[in-house]
Amino acid sequence: MNDTLPSPTPRDDLAVDATGLVKTFGRPGSSVFRAVDGVDLQVVRGEVFGVLGPNGAGKTTMLSMLATLLPIDGGRASIFGVDVVDQPHRVRQLLGVTGQYASVDENLTATENLVLFARLLGHRWPAARTIAADLLERFGLTEAATRQIKNFSGGMRRRLDLAASLISRPPLIFLDEPTTGLDPRTRGQMWDTIRELVAQGSTILLTTQYLDEADQLADRIAVIDAGRKVAEGTPEELKAGVGSSTLHLRLTDRTQTAAAAAVVERALGEAPVLTPEAGGLNVPLANADGAGDVLIALRQAELSITTATVRQPTLDEVFLALTGHHSEPTENDHQNDHETEEVA
């Protein structure tokens, strides 16, 4: 995927190069909130880079700074070697931004929206109309072309929004939570569209709250928590820390939790994570087949269970593994305390 542009020197192959990005909100002296707190980000040309984090982690703020929408309070950033602070107009010519909330005009029709953006980008009227018609067809919106956006469904808005970002054929595309709030089917369509863009050689910086989305689309992932980068790597590397799936067990007798944990550790060579509710165990598995071994071991140890579920690790579990706390702050802080020790 990275073979589209051979790089003479290491730094030349970067689409996004940010070091020590900082964004603070609030006045100095009073409670200053560091929304982004010294993040480094290097995105190689032609790759899909995923920024994974919970709500409020600072993902959108970071993207807004890189897209010249927010002033940068600290650190520096460049897009294809162009400094974001010094050359905002040049940076904007290299970027397509698709926002978390569709940034299209509610009062205009789909065609009018695309024609407007094409006109703003310097296309003459006839060319603007052709571009609009082509994009609407490509995104399956031809039938809705003359409808006002306020009558569009969430999925249609997102698609139109993405279409609008492609008018200038930008070499770098920012996708801010492209599928948040979409139903599974529309989400799948969006993923296909994004994969098409990748196949054409676009560099994509994507933010998401969903591990599976980052897993499906991204070549590399940075995990952001409370404005800081807590991990970076390929999806495989990140998931190695939590296993590719998780076996969740609940014991009939909660007093046997420790005994069960010992049995599991013997069976897999790795300690399970105790869940907040008593009598529960989360067992990270390298692959789902390992679940059988665990169940057999428990049976042989005559430990009875009420439920056993195998599923993909959630973002929360990746978080727990990486940061030692849950992705969403919980009311019961003591939970975090006792879980911190479980994670190496």
């Binding site: 294809f80 290299l94 067809e137 492609l166 054929r169 070499p171 595309i173 863009l197």
Partner: peptide
């Protein structure tokens, strides 16, 4: 990856070759 569908526009990669210094 999924099959590449033919798009009416040239691949965005064409623009990636643009030298940023050429931009206004």
């Amino acid at each position: 990856m999924t099959a590449v569908t033919e798009s009416p526009q040239a691949p965005p990669a064409v623009r990636a070759a643009v030298v940023p210094e050429d931009l206004a």
